[in-house]
Design a protein around this nucleic acid. Sequence first.
DNA 1: GCCAACGTTGGC
DNA 2: GCCAACGTTGGC
Length: 150
Amino acid sequence: MNHWLMKSEPEAYSIGDLERDRITWWEGVRNYQARNNMVQMKVGDRVLFYHSNAKPPGVAGLARVVKEAYADHFARDASSKYFDPKSTEDNPRWQMVDVEFEAKFTDVVGLDRIKENESLADMVLVNNSRLSVQPVKKREFGIIAKMGGC
DNA sequence: GCCAACGTTGGC
DNA sequence: GCCAACGTTGGC
């Protein structure tokens, strides 16, 4: 089983939205590195749900993968903000997965606290802050889940 | 709102 | 294949 961190701007889609919906598809990833990470995901993998561009930024809860990568059809929808004219039926280019709500932290585990923790210094989050889908070590996942009360 | 870091595009 | 120009991300 692998562990991941996925970013969402809470104004667009928050952990509270996922708690309400229970399951959502993760459309709109338009970065190859993030996509390549998403394609690796297996059913049952665990996800840190990160609020970016938020006050405060940080991990807001937990989710799990319930459907492995499949074509992101929004890339072929000209009315979508995720439209990509280079995506074709034969070569969809972009993929998405489905994730299911697992837990909402009582308090967001802030990026400042993550940066303060020496055990988390190797996290991609701390070293390449732009990547929106990143691998997380099992240990790192455990530390953050615990900080969030899970 | 600023801007550093990074990714993508496209001319050559 | 290089790299300048440009666009985006996301913390501050």
